[in-house]
Each structure stands twice: as structure tokens, then as C-alpha cells.
């Protein structure tokens, strides 16, 4: 899972970089991100006068007011990346090892096999104390091609 719309998120008009009165448009904000130069905003605008900058450059306060939203976006991205990494690890593990556990229930977290049992109840009880629920699945006896519904 990757972040296909990160750019679109950041391009939302009046996004976390722009206050209602600011002329800092979404395209400018994207440009800033592309250049990793948020702190050098003034230096990136050589063609604009000092007066224009005085009038229109966003204040530090305006930037900071968008911080909670930016941090929330960052947290979502991290969570998304972590979920994607975990799924890839579990898929790889299953591709390599699932035949060994045909007909059994297993609990998996990333590459780590946490529990194996004959019933789901047995496996769920073994992983009941974990803070985050692991992947719990029944490994098919014979994974024949499926005809669909």
C-alpha cells in the first residue's frame, strides 16, 4: 500500500499551509515541499519586493496554526506505511510457509508466527493479551482456484 494521493492531499486549497488571507496558494505550497525549503520561503521569492513579502508572507503563527493538521497527516502516513509493510511481510510469510499449516488456524504478526491451533478459539485465546490484534486466519487444506460467485 502506498500513498498515491499524498500530493493531492497537500494541494487542497486553503490547506494547512494557507490562511484565508494569504496569497500562498496550493501550488506554492507544493513547490515549497518539493524544494524542502519551507524555512527559506522568503529566499525563494527573489522577484518579489520586500513590501510584498511584508504584506503577504505568512507569519510564523499562521504556519504553526496548521501544525496539528500536518502532524495528523504525518501520523496517518506513518500508520499507512506500517500497515502496508506488515501486510507485505505477512503475505510473504504465508507464501513461503502456509502449506506447513494446512487446515490449521494461525495467528501472524508481520513475519512472526504467534500461535497455531486446530480451532480459531484456541488461537484467539493464545493471542488475547496482545495490544494490537494479529492477523488470524484459517489456512485452507487445499487452495484450489476459486470459481467465483
Amino acid at each position: 500500500m502506498t500513498d498515491a494521493l499524498l500530493v493531492s492531499d497537500q494541494q487542497i486549497e486553503k490547506g494547512f499551509f494557507a490562511s484565508a488571507s494569504s496569497r500562498l496558494c496550493a501550488r506554492d505550497a507544493q513547490s515549497l515541499l518539493d524544494n524542502h525549503a519551507l524555512q527559506a520561503w522568503g529566499l525563494l521569492q527573489p522577484c518579489r519586493s520586500a513590501a510584498w513579502l511584508d504584506d503577504n508572507t505568512m507569519t510564523l503563527q499562521a504556519h504553526l496554526s496548521g501544525a496539528p493538521r500536518a502532524l495528523a497527516s504525518l501520523a496517518r502516513l506513518r500508520q499507512r506505511a506500517e500497515g502496508g509493510r506488515q501486510f507485505r511481510e505477512e503475505s510473504t510469510w504465508l507464501a513461503d510457509n502456509s502449506r506447513t499449516f494446512s487446515g490449521r488456524w494461525i495467528a501472524l504478526e508481520g513475519r512472526q508466527l504467534l500461535a497455531v491451533g486446530a480451532t480459531s478459539k484456541e488461537v484467539f485465546s493464545k493471542v488475547a493479551n496482545r495490544a494490537k490484534p494479529p492477523l488470524v486466519i484459517h489456512v485452507a487444506d487445499e487452495d484450489l482456484p476459486f470459481a467465483g460467485w
Binding site: 502506498t2 498515491a4 494521493l5 504465508l94 490484534p133
Partner: peptide, 28 residues
């Protein structure tokens, strides 16, 4: 918004799903 790469080694197109009841127990 999202891109999900699935595995060629399993039958069908698997996606990770979570189920939850209220604020209580959840399964993956």
C-alpha cells in the same frame, strides 16, 4: 488515494480487513 499490491502466490485478490464492534474487541 491508495495503491495496494497483492500477491500472485495466493488464489484471488487478498486485502487486509479489520472488524470491530464498538470500542471493544477487534479482529484482523
Amino acid at each position: 488515494r491508495s495503491r495496494h499490491d497483492y500477491s500472485s502466490s495466493v488464489v484471488g485478490i487478498d486485502i487486509p480487513v479489520g472488524l470491530k464492534i464498538g470500542d471493544g474487541r477487534s479482529v484482523r
